[in-house]
Design a protein around this nucleic acid. Structure first.
Length: 267
DNA sequence: CTAATCACCTGAAGGC
DNA sequence: TGCCTTCAGGTGATTA
């Protein structure tokens, strides 16, 4: 469910409300939410900062870090009006503030670690990080023999993109999803970099995309799904050329693209 | 190193 | 109505 824009929307909402708060108690209704090897008591810790790298939410505590990944269907809800139907963890903070982790599919994970590196060592630069320049991005592409779809979905190089925003970024930069990363022209790579930033920032402005499960910390849906060019648009005409948008499995994921507008590089 | 497949889970949707 | 299959904003392990 959530990719970078959805996670960013959530942390912008929880940051001002939970920063500085002490954790009093944790109700764990689905223990596998916690990675066992990291299971350490959280009660008594204070949340000092709320950050994000890719799709990982990082709550910096006075001692250690609580890292949360929503995976496919996780939701963080602040003071929900009713008990959510698929409540997995309920965090009680001082002043009666509660943060519920609702997660239908039970894929979401919470990690409590001393250093965030323990969880994020394989994760690349955040897609919106200032250090990730177009030059750095092009160098990573040149070194990779992977297909561009797999490259962008893998979080090892750039963190934060998922299936929706990969498809939208490739369409907008006119690159076929079966292209080979290292074979992109310099111009194509530059377009891709720019469009990734535009797509993500636009989606953040729209409070993320809601296909089915995604809700922000206030339980509200996003709006970015109303502006998709290709994602779930198979069978409809391309907005640029009128050709029919196709959907086929690439890198194991349903992939949406225009066979006319998106050029194949390599392969 | 890259690619493909399965595993982890639940629920919605479509075919018959 | 009901049963069966397929699919889903993700990622990690395992196997070619």
């Amino acid at each position: 469910m959530p990719e970078l824009p959805e996670v960013e929307t959530v942390i912008r909402e929880i940051r001002p409300r939970i920063t500085g708060k002490k954790i009093e108690k944790l109700d764990v209704l689905w223990p596998k939410t916690f990675e066992h090897r990291f299971r350490i008591p959280l009660a008594g810790r204070t949340i000092v900062q709320v950050d994000r790298i890719g799709k990982y939410i990082i709550l910096k505590l006075d001692k250690g870090n609580l890292i949360i990944h929503l995976r496919m269907s996780g939701q963080l809800l602040l003071n929900p009006a009713a008990i959510p139907a698929h409540l997995r963890v309920l965090m009680h903070m001082e002043g009666g503030l509660r943060m519920a982790f609702n997660d239908v599919r039970k894929f979401g994970r919470w990690y409590f670690v001393q250093s965030e590196k323990e969880v994020l060592k394989q994760i690349g630069m955040d897609a919106l990080a200032p250090e990730l320049t177009c030059t750095v991005f092009k160098k990573m592409l040149k070194k990779s023999g992977m297909g561009i779809k797999a490259f962008l979905l893998s979080q090892r190089f750039i963190a934060g993109l998922g299936n929706i925003y990969v498809d939208e970024s490739l369409f907008r930069s006119r690159i076929h999803p079966l292209s080979v990363s290292a074979k992109l022209s310099a111009e194509a790579a530059g377009r891709l970099f720019a469009e990734i930033r535009k797509v993500l920032n636009f989606a953040i402005d729209q409070m993320g995309s809601t296909i089915s499960d995604y809700r922000d910390a206030n339980g509200k849906v996003g709006n970015a799904q109303n502006f998709f060019y290709v994602y779930q648009q198979q069978g409809r005409p391309c907005v640029t050329c009128g050709a029919t948008i196709l959907k086929q499995k690439i890198s194991g994921r349903g992939t949406h693209f225009c066979p006319e507008c998106q050029k194949l590089y390599g392969r």
